[in-house]
Each structure stands twice: as structure tokens, then as C-alpha cells.
Design a protein around this nucleic acid. Structure first.
Length: 215
DNA sequence: TCGTAGGTTTT
DNA sequence: AAAACCTACGA
């Protein structure tokens, strides 16, 4: 069921779950056509330089094969895209085809290294639609397009285990793993060594947790 | 899952 | 003493 009377007023640029907002110029395009049945498209006239909004606070700029090959000052466009959407996670979706692949590494250097945006390559509009569908559907689950607050270097499983130690919460678990990197290491530390990271009371608690056999 | 009250630890 | 932290509880 396509809902044709979409609201004329833009309340916000964040679509409801399972939907994407895309700029009106995509109406009737191959890309939009392949959303059918998987994600719902809401067309919006004034989206500025953005092509597509996802509800996970991401917005997408689509760079087509012809944009790349013709050099259509897409760089200027990407810069405007980045500047206009500081609150969102900017993703540049580029068509990497036989014709455009020779320009890809240059584009990659520019988008990722210089602008700090995410770059995703697809071979065709159909593939782009599939990828976007996956991004939309993966929103509720963990997905690689979500902004991560914590640093990715710490294993979340290990982090959780360390937090099971009484007196140790998020902050101290992070601090401990930053300094000692493994549970195995932490459990062999003396209370004095632990005190270099954590306070005296907590150091005792941690040492006790590993060494006091509770009855 | 997220925010917060209330008690404890750290500085 | 103030700031930071931990935990448990309720929306």
C-alpha cells in the first residue's frame, strides 16, 4: 500500500521506523523503485543537498556513476553535504562501476581521510537500494552505521565481566582495562598495584573478589 | 532501555 | 567538602 498523501509540512528530517525520506528528484527512479515492499519511501521537496534520510540519524548523499565520471564538481557537493549536517552521521554512497572505478581511490581519500565521512560503494542503484534497506532494517539491532560512543578497542564482553566485580562500574572498568588490558592480568595484581588506578577501598574489594574464598 | 535518587568512594 | 562514581529501582 503506497501512501500517496504524504504530509506537506516537514516536522523533522527523521523518518519513522522502516521509512526513509528521500529528495523528490528520486521519484520514479530505479533506486526508489527497488524499495518497494521493503522500506517505505517518503518524498520531500526541500532536502537541500541531502538525498536520503534514515531514522538512525544518518543521512546519505548519493554520488552516481555519471557524477563521478563527469567530475560534476561533486567534491563541492560533498563538502556542502558535510557542512550542512553536523548533527547527523553523513554517509556518502558512491556508484563504483567499470567506468567510475578509476576515480574511486581519489574519492575515497577525499571523503574518508579529508572529510571524515563514511564511504560506501555499490555497483548499481539496485544494489544501493538493497544496502539502504539493510541499513533501515538493521536499525533496531546493532549495525555498523550506528554512532558508537565508547571506543571500539575494548571488548564489550570483557568490559561487562569486569563490571561484575562489586564496586566496579563503567568508569572503573574502563580505567582498569585501559591500564591492564586483561582480566587475567587484573586478577593477579596486588591491592597496591590496583590502587594506582582505583581508590583504596575499591582496590581492596577487587582483590578480595579474586582472592577471598567466600566460605 | 534510560534516567535518577541515594549512598559510597575519590580527590 | 565537592566531585565522581556505583547500584538499584521505576518509568
Amino acid at each position: 500500500m503506497d501512501s500517496k498523501p504524504s504530509p506537506a509540512v516537514v516536522v523533522s528530517a527523521v523518518p519513522p521506523y522502516g521509512h526513509v525520506i528521500l529528495s523528490a528528484k528520486w521519484r520514479g527512479s530505479t533506486l526508489a523503485h527497488h524499495f518497494k515492499g521493503v522500506v517505505k519511501a517518503i518524498f520531500e521537496e526541500e532536502l537541500g543537498v541531502v538525498d536520503l534520510h534514515l531514522s538512525n540519524k544518518s543521512c546519505i548523499l548519493y554520488v552516481s556513476e555519471s557524477d563521478v565520471v563527469a567530475g560534476n564538481d561533486y567534491k563541492r557537493k560533498i563538502v556542502r553535504f558535510r557542512n550542512a549536517n553536523s548533527n547527523f552521521h553523513g554517509v556518502v554512497l558512491v556508484e563504483k562501476t567499470r567506468l567510475s572505478e578509476q576515480y574511486f581511490s581519489g574519492l575515497q581519500r577525499f571523503v574518508v581521510l579529508e572529510l571524515g565521512l563514511t564511504l560506501l560503494a555499490v555497483a548499481s542503484p539496485v544494489e544501493a537500494a538493497q544496502l539502504i534497506s539493510q541499513m533501515v532494517h538493521g536499525e533496531s539491532k546493532e549495525n555498523p552505521f550506528r554512532r558508537r560512543s565508547a571506543c571500539r578497542l575494548l571488548d564489550p564482553v570483557v568490559l561487562n565481566l569486569v563490571q561484575q566485580i562489586p564496586g566496579v562500574g563503567k568508569v572503573k572498568a574502563m580505567a582498569l582495562l585501559q591500564q591492564f588490558s586483561s582480566i587475567h592480568q587484573i586478577c593477579n595484581l596486588s591491592a597496591q598495584q590496583l590502587e594506582s588506578v582505583v581508590g583504596q577501598a575499591t582496590a581492596q574489594q577487587i582483590w578480595g573478589f579474586f582472592h577471598n574464598q567466600l566460605s
